[in-house]
Design a protein around this nucleic acid. Sequence first.
DNA 1: TAAAATAGTTTGTGGCACGTACTAAATCAA
DNA 2: TTGATTTAGTACGTGCCACAAACTATTTTA
Lengths: 164, 164
Amino acid sequence: MTSRAVDRRATAAPEELSTVDGLAQLSFLIHGTLERRAAERELSIIQTRLLGVLRDRKPTMNELAKVLMLDKSSISGLVDRAERRDLVVRVPSDADRRAVLVALTDRGRALVSDVAARFGADVSSLLDRLPASDRATLSRLVSRLLVAHAADRGIDLFAPTTTG
Amino acid sequence: MTSRAVDRRATAAPEELSTVDGLAQLSFLIHGTLERRAAERELSIIQTRLLGVLRDRKPTMNELAKVLMLDKSSISGLVDRAERRDLVVRVPSDADRRAVLVALTDRGRALVSDVAARFGADVSSLLDRLPASDRATLSRLVSRLLVAHAADRGIDLFAPTTTG
DNA sequence: TAAAATAGTTTGTGGCACGTACTAAATCAA
DNA sequence: TTGATTTAGTACGTGCCACAAACTATTTTA
């Protein structure tokens, strides 16, 4: 189930990975790339995701739990650790005195931008191995997959709430 | 940095994700799919990777540390927990009395096969959203990316040792 | 054969995720 | 309106995962 192991069986044609194995391997490669870039800034994947979500939102703890698909008790600890590093702040909600809003600090915003930029550069340079026309094709096919998958789950990838 | 957040900015053309964002999002989708399938069998990603590596090898602890890119002390605990569940066994090495070989048990082999099959089916059904010709194209492009990336790191993806 | 290197374990620390139990505030119902 | 229920968040205990440092046992080397 390591990238190596995944590509080992069911390789249909020699000199070419099966689509399933290839996609799996590529996923691990990209995931590992983000993990590495985040680690260079002392961030875990989940801390990075947290900061990423906060780039364009100021959600409650509860909303964070839903978006990140974690238990609310996990969010408490996650935000605790980020707050200790001055990456996020807790802000009391005006609308609901039980609720707590979470926002990026300048430091948090700078950090996530940095990681995103470095990660983006990595993926871009990986993609540079393909001629531009192939890149365009790949982009189109990947988009199609994602849109189809999102549609399956009743989500419009380009709806205002999601995209704006 | 959640799949949602990643796709949110630098979306060049409307109705289409940038290649970088699309690939990132697809990676998280596939990674999450494996995570879910593994969790259904009470396995973490790293436990699943461990079992995956062992499908076609019987490495030492030290080799495992290299393949999984973990500290050897992490491997001790990882193998401990897997051994407790009767998924792997430690076997003393004949060649080096310091060394310990790790092998799958029948139970471990059955479990990893099960997870791999379910995960493979997930990815396949995702791919089924594309017409066959697009699938072939995608497969070719992904393979090309992986081969190019491997070559960068001085690895021949199809060398006998790697490909079995 | 003595010193250095290697294989693996143990212990301590911290992050991450969960479930349970708890407090405070908001909402619902009678 | 007030009493019951639901909701938002935290605290605590448990377990997994990862690391570094310290340790034992073996092998290699000089």
